[in-house]
Nucleic acid binder design. Structure first.
Lengths: 297, 297
DNA sequence: ATGAATTACGGACCCCGTAACGATA
DNA sequence: TATCGTTACGGGGTCCGTAATTCAT
């Protein structure tokens, strides 16, 4: 059995032409190369070199052997890469979601079920999610409704209720619930990356203007220091964090961690319309069912 | 760098399923396999096995690795074979000839010029020789005339003069030379494998009957013990071997070594027609000139 | 209790680098 | 004389087999 490193030496030699230069390039001694090439010849059973007293060069067979060795070493690297890529692909899961909140829930579940899994997530509109699932851009997608396609499996993930988060002096602050049409026309502050909620609220409140805020921190500051109305969700605790699930803060410490800093200057008023209470579903191809049903249970 | 034998062990293991059986099949200890598979895992950087306390099996990545290793080992064998085949092809030369005599001459020349060359020879008709040279069935062919195709190189090899070999009581035994037409109609004994001579004599002596003899020994016996006319050539000595080129007997001891055993019961009469004095040419593709011109000088 | 995998230990072998040598330009 | 390739020698590392251990059927 030929040692792969000896083949590599042959390849380098075929490029340099002398053992000395090869030795320098490979940081080994010349004698190692001499012996290696001798061994190579004996293992091929073919005369690969023409030797004069102080020079060494390749025969035609040797040139062929060097060329073959070069592609062989590439095949070796390919084999390694294939296996490694396969392993990495097996251990990573790409998730596409229609909203940020259920991402946290799913990531947490996957993390406890398969701690060595690496996860990548994206927020996309629902049609893109379905396309992405189809072409394996995503292995899992999160939809606010169960899919109709019977090639897909799905599991209920969690629910989310949207609230108006109103200043205590707001005219609706005392209400037990509100319909969106009642707030239509009122300007509101809105976080940018909220997925399908964005489309929903702009559709249901066509006369309102929405001030889009990309960053979480200034968004929180505006809530604390203004009376402008915003949305919030039951996923964000209204009360201090000790009464809420602490794990959410662990897995996504940079996420909006609730509005408790407002010092109770605001109240949450549930939105009565049924579209604002959604149930999220994890959706995946049936062929991957064996791999993913553990994540969703 | 992964050792090829370790990959082989992986392949065998993927077929047997246990280290024990693999060890038996490879005539090595189980501990060697344990260590080998551990090393393999570390070199792939991928978890290839699922281990319980007393069993070992492949993960999906491991199964893939075993499959890839199998094709990789085949590529290794292919590389070896390619180089060896190339070398063997470089060192063997196929010769096609129109007649047996010049084969001896050429083989002898090649043997002294390149002692490690292996040679295969065939007698074929001239059109087949040209086809065979074209499609590389032959690297060298021997023709009784120089080729016209200017894609071909050629070198004069040797000459051959054909004789009638007549019993001393034959009516032409005293002649200094003969034309073939003078012998036309007379029955003759003929060796089978004499190449283009066969076609030539049957064409020039259309009224003769030729008794074909395949074997050399009975042919010699018939010459010694009958008065039937035969052909001979200046390549076969008419006199005892010490006056003739001894090398012919060295290189082709099984060939007809002359008719000297006849005890001078016969005489050689040269055939006067120019077609019966031929000059042989070694012919080869110009692209192989560098390789073959040494043989023909 | 048998068989499987892993680990510890000891020895053989291999492989490498240094150095000396031969030869060439 | 400087450079290149080969060979001799010594040390270190690696690899293997034996044997002991643990666990499961």
């Amino acid at each position: 059995m030929i040692d792969l490193k000896t083949l590599e030496q042959l390849v380098i030699f075929s490029h340099t032409g002398t053992l000395c230069e090869t030795a320098k390039k490979l940081h080994i001694s010349q004698s190692t190369l001499t012996r290696g090439m001798q061994k190579l010849e004996s293992e091929f059973g073919v005369c690969l070199f023409i030797r004069t007293k102080n020079s060494l060069s390749l025969t035609e067979a040797g040139t062929l052997a060097a060329a073959e060795a070069e592609v062989f070493l590439r095949q070796y690297a390919g084999m390694l890469r294939h296996v490694q890529d396969f392993d990495r692909k097996k251990r990573t899961v790409s998730i596409g979601s229609c909203a940020p909140v259920p991402i946290s829930v799913l990531v947490q579940r996957i993390t406890v079920a398969c701690p060595d899994t690496s996860i990548s997530t994206e927020l996309k509109k629902i049609p893109q999610l379905l396309y992405g699932l189809e072409d394996d851009t995503y292995q899992l997608i999160i939809l606010p409704f169960p899919p109709e396609n019977d090639q897909l499996s799905f599991q209920k993930l969690c629910e989310e209720q949207l609230f108006f988060y109103l200043h205590k002096n707001h005219r609706f602050a005392g209400r037990k619930s509100l319909h969106v049409r009642e707030m239509n026309g009122e300007n509101m502050l809105l976080l940018r990356d909220i997925g399908f909620w964005h489309d929903l609220v702009t559709e249901k409140m066509p006369d309102s203007r929405f001030f889009i805020q990309a960053e979480t921190y200034p968004f929180q500051e505006l809530i604390a220091n203004s009376t402008i109305s915003v949305f919030t969700t039951d996923a964000y605790p209204d009360t201090p964090p000790d009464t809420a699930s602490p794990s959410l803060n662990e897995t996504k410490p940079e996420a909006p961690s609730g509005h408790e800093n407002s010092g109770m200057e605001r109240v949450r008023v549930p939105i009565a319309d049924p579209e604002f209470h959604v149930t999220y579903y994890v959706v995946y191809k049936k062929e991957n069912g064996k791999r993913f049903h553990a994540f969703s249970s």
